[in-house]
Design a protein around this nucleic acid. Sequence first.
DNA 1: TAGATTGTTAATCGATTAACAATC
DNA 2: TAGATTGTTAATCGATTAACAATC
Lengths: 218, 218
Amino acid sequence: MRWRKISDAVVRRLPLYLRVLDEVVKSGDTPMISSQELGARAGVGSALVRKDLAWFGEFGKQGVGYEVEYLRSELKQILNMEREHNIILVGAGSLGIALARYTIRRYHMDDSFSLKLVGLFDHDPDKIGKAYEGISVFAMAEMESFVRKHNVQMAMITVPADAAQDIAMQLVNCGVRAILNLAPVKLTLPEHVQLLNADLTLELQRLAYYLAPGQTWE
Amino acid sequence: MRWRKISDAVVRRLPLYLRVLDEVVKSGDTPMISSQELGARAGVGSALVRKDLAWFGEFGKQGVGYEVEYLRSELKQILNMEREHNIILVGAGSLGIALARYTIRRYHMDDSFSLKLVGLFDHDPDKIGKAYEGISVFAMAEMESFVRKHNVQMAMITVPADAAQDIAMQLVNCGVRAILNLAPVKLTLPEHVQLLNADLTLELQRLAYYLAPGQTWE
DNA sequence: TAGATTGTTAATCGATTAACAATC
DNA sequence: TAGATTGTTAATCGATTAACAATC
């Protein structure tokens, strides 16, 4: 069963809840957790926690709270973390390789993170054939067949800004449905593709807004 | 003159506008731009563009639009990009070094990006003394005096999750006022510190929500 | 049972969009 | 002047919070 039109504001809090539940399970402290406690640890109000979860079902018991293990497994399912997803990364520069390591480490260490990096792509002949953390770098020309063969539905883009749009469209054309873009450029993609622009330049400039001399902000 | 309590929703769009104006200046296409055009290129409605800008002053001319060069210089000033800010990065792992390169490249290439990376910090003796892109790695013990000496107000954190909170507090204690945290953990800091958690794990898990088999999203 | 906490409805808050008088 | 676009107010939309009956 799937749920139409859940607001993105809701969806972005689910991984936060899942992380808290992972920690609680690992600590072994308690088999039950209240929306109050879960909210406090996720940095969200308790009413909002209950409302968010209620979109997907009735997971709690009045007077007691939520069973930690059960809620965790439900959230994993909702976030599609119960099965593995093959993902690739395009652009094996230093940021790309760092991100590759980061993703692979998560995959190995974090029980609720089931995104498996299966290939790196770059057009630089010097990089093709190398491997990082056991993952090979392939030529751009192989990307399309690779994506189809391994049923890759998600990709990360860490190429220079002027190449990002073109590569994103190639990916979409061979079946990729979700893209994390780290190139400092706004991509335009078909509606059915989930796109997340993680543009650190913009974020840093935003932070700088709050640095006016002598200024304090509440 | 400064403006109290501008909503964060507004502030996060300003760097986007600034980027568009940079592009327009560089292309040399037109000396004037309408809120319509600016909005289209930034992915924002024209009414919202006008409303956002109006928080800071009256920059446009009725019937004509905004003078590109002038609006750009005003936005640079609002975002504090008219003067340089020294920033540091703590945690010289592969993600840290990639981010260092990224930041330095921006600083050199982008006229509207005036955040200057001046130091890397790590506790690994093997890394201390090395340099990346001309920036040295210093020992953690030197961090406090370095921050004070170079008047560092902004920092990026790329250390493992369990060390991030402690380091963030050290930074805040010696005067840092804005932190970009890439460690996968929620930091708790004093109210006056601007904190941005850029947690790629959470973002990737969020994207995975939309990968339910056979599902299409509008 | 008494106490606690859920799921849900109503109230509030904030952000975006529409509309338009002012004016270049 | 006529046409265009701003700055701003009012209307709409959506998200969060408060409140509480249901019930474990």
